[in-house]
Amino acid sequence: MTLFEIIILAIIQGITEFLPISSSAHLILPSELLGWQNQGLAFDVAVHVGSLLAVMIYFRADIARMLVAWVQSGFSRQQTDDSKLAWWVILATIPAVVFGFVAKDFIEEYARSALVIACTTIFFGLVLWYADATGKLSKNIYQLTWKNALFIGLAQAMALIPGTSRSGITMTAGLMLGMDRESAARFSFLLSIPVILGAGLLATLDLFQQETVVDWEALFYGIGLSFVSAYTCIYLFLSWISKIGMLPFVIYRLVLGVVLLGFVFW
């Protein structure tokens, strides 16, 4: 990859990882539409490391409270709000792990195409609009139940299909359950931590099994730029989402999907 491609892809990953517009779609598109060289597994790991650092540092106080409460409460019946939230994150992660192991190879072979991305971008964009327009927007993050967490986790599992958007589908599920926009986004971001960490570890193991030359300069830029763009994105999104709603992202998804269909058929 050229330095320009490295910079653009790292920034794209950092921004789109947490916006409801699909990071995987945007990382696939440059190679599909512009003929750019595939960024490769090592660079994929690097930009996800940057995104992971960003979300963990931003939510460091929340993570610390949840971890302490979870350790102190354990499996007892006396759970605090923070220990329950930690359990709900764990529970909501399980469906994605199971579905990932079962369907990973199938998705890699058949679902990573511009046509699939176009269709899922449009469809799940409309679902996001419906959830945002009809949701009660009254439930905060501590009012989630285990059934709510499992529902969001099942929705997250669908995000393995490129174009769905992990953050988009989990926020959609949260809105459908009556969560306010900021709480739906915060739970989605907290839920991203074990998912990104797990995916990064698996990709790292795959990387060690390959005999490839690693471009350390590209990895350095990838981690740094994705971290900065992801942290900025999280901060701005949580600051604005209650005011602007999901409609701007829905419109973006619809326009992107139509453009992609144009590339596919014309």
Rank of each mutant, 00 (worst) to 15 (best):
Q39N: 09
A111G: 13
V97H: 02
E108S: 08
L160P: 08
V55F: 04
V55N: 06
V250Y: 11
V102G: 02
A103F: 15
M66R: 00
V89L: 13
I12N: 00
T164Q: 07
V98W: 14
K104H: 10
A96P: 09
Y231V: 07
A92N: 14
L128Q: 08
V116C: 07
F227L: 09
L201N: 08
K104N: 05
V127C: 03
S242T: 13
G262A: 10
F123V: 15
A159F: 08
S138E: 15
Y235R: 12
L177N: 09
Y58C: 01
G50R: 11
A173G: 13
F208V: 14
Y252T: 10
G40P: 01
F151M: 14
Q79L: 11
A230K: 10
L247W: 13
F106S: 14
L150E: 12
Q78L: 11
K147T: 06
I117H: 07
W129Y: 15
R181C: 06
S22C: 03
F18A: 01
G74T: 05
Q78C: 09
V89K: 05
V97T: 03
I28K: 10
Y252H: 06
L207C: 01
W70Y: 15
L177Q: 13
S183H: 07
T134D: 07
K104Q: 07
S242N: 15
I234H: 06
A118R: 01
S31T: 11
W129V: 03
K139N: 04
L126E: 02
D180F: 03
V127F: 11
Q13W: 08
E32V: 09
I57V: 05
G257A: 07
C119V: 15
A199Y: 10
R166E: 09
D206I: 03
A61W: 12
I21V: 14
K243E: 15
Y221H: 12
Q156M: 13
